[in-house]
């Protein structure tokens, strides 16, 4: 089982130096954007004895797309999974530090994971529709959380979610056919519809386009841009072009550390750290 160190930085005074620079960067840019949605402070993650994240401090702002980039194994997916406590599922994972969602620590003892995940949705790397009908896939979350009591209300939620995910037109006539029968891109948009059906505040996306072809990718990227109006989005991506296209802020991770965070434009045009420079110019990673 997962062991959680609930102490936040106020009670654990030993905050080592490595995070300080990143924190300063985050604070410097915070004023420019909308209100703070998520604030990670001194997050450490261990898989068994291996430390996957070291003292990460990162602020995520409302109605904005924040891209997490970095070479494989740098901890960006690990960080993403901390934000809705999906690391709980992994046997050996241990998380330390504080992550505030609207000012509340999500690693608090009395926080209910179920409500947290209803507020922080997630879309995975590989489209993973349930082996159910398209309708049931989207209605899955609302049913679990008791949203939409009557059939009419549920129909409404399903239709709106599919509409927002830009899928309604394509599947309108076959809502009761299996979701696994859709194409890869459609499946991924179905998963996005499934995530927004429970009306979350934040949507986490873990390389949502890596299993899709360029056309489907473009479609999903468009969608992400539209969703920004209503949701706060955090996206992990391997493609720097994608980060540049869809995000407003970019955070660069390297070897478990948050190296640099800032305006996407700034990161890609004038990175402050030479590791970031090296990565975005393709010298490593």
């Amino acid at each position: 089982m997962m062991v959680m160190d609930r102490s936040n930085r106020a009670t654990a005074p030993t905050a080592p130096a490595p995070g300080a620079q990143a924190e300063a960067t985050a604070e410097a840019t915070a004023g420019v954007y909308g209100p703070l949605k998520i604030s990670a402070q001194g997050v450490d993650v261990f898989y068994g004895d291996k430390q996957a994240l070291k003292q990460v401090d990162l602020d995520i702002h409302e109605n904005q797309v924040t891209a997490l980039i970095g070479p494989s194994g740098c901890g960006k997916s690990t960080f993403l999974r901390c934000l809705n406590r999906m690391n709980d599922v992994i046997e050996s994972a241990r998380v330390r530090g504080t992550i505030l969602l609207d000012g509340q620590n999500i690693y608090d003892r009395d926080l209910d994971v179920v409500t947290l995940r209803a507020r922080v949705g997630m879309v995975f790397q590989k489209p993973n529709p349930f082996p159910k009908s398209i309708y049931d896939n989207v209605a899955y979350g609302p049913r679990i959380h008791g949203i939409g009591s009557g059939k009419a209300e549920l129909d409404e939620i399903v239709a709106t979610s599919l509409e927002r995910a830009g899928l309604l037109k394509e599947v309108k006539d076959r809502l009761h056919e299996p979701g696994t029968g859709l194409s890869g891109g459609q499946q991924q948009r179905l998963c996005i519809a499934r995530a927004i059906a429970v009306n979350p505040d934040v949507i986490l996306m873990d390389e949502p386009c890596s299993a899709l072809d360029p056309i489907a990718t473009a479609r999903v990227e468009e969608l992400i841009d539209e969703l920004r109006e209503n949701y706060t989005i955090v996206i992990v991506t391997h493609s720097m072009q994608q980060a540049a296209r869809v995000s407003q802020r970019t955070a660069f991770f390297h070897l478990g550390e948050l190296v640099e965070v800032g305006d996407t434009e700034q990161i890609f045009t004038s990175p402050r750290d030479e590791r970031t420079q090296g990565y975005i110019t393709g010298r490593f990673g």
């Binding site: 809705n84 999906m86 599922v89 994971v113 179920v114 409500t115 947290l116 995940r117 209803a118 949705g121 997630m122 995975f124 590989k126 993973n128 529709p129 349930f130 082996p131 159910k132 899955y140 979350g141 679990i144 959380h145 998963c191 499934r194 995530a195 429970v198």
Partner: peptide, 25 residues
């Protein structure tokens, strides 16, 4: 496991995931 993850990420509990995703599959 991705199916289970998908269900957990929507806020389903373990037993809900088993009853509604794993068992039917």
């Amino acid at each position: 496991q991705t199916l289970r993850d998908g269900s957990y990420a929507l806020g389903a509990t373990k037993s809900e995931t088993i009853r509604q995703v794993v068992f039917p599959a």
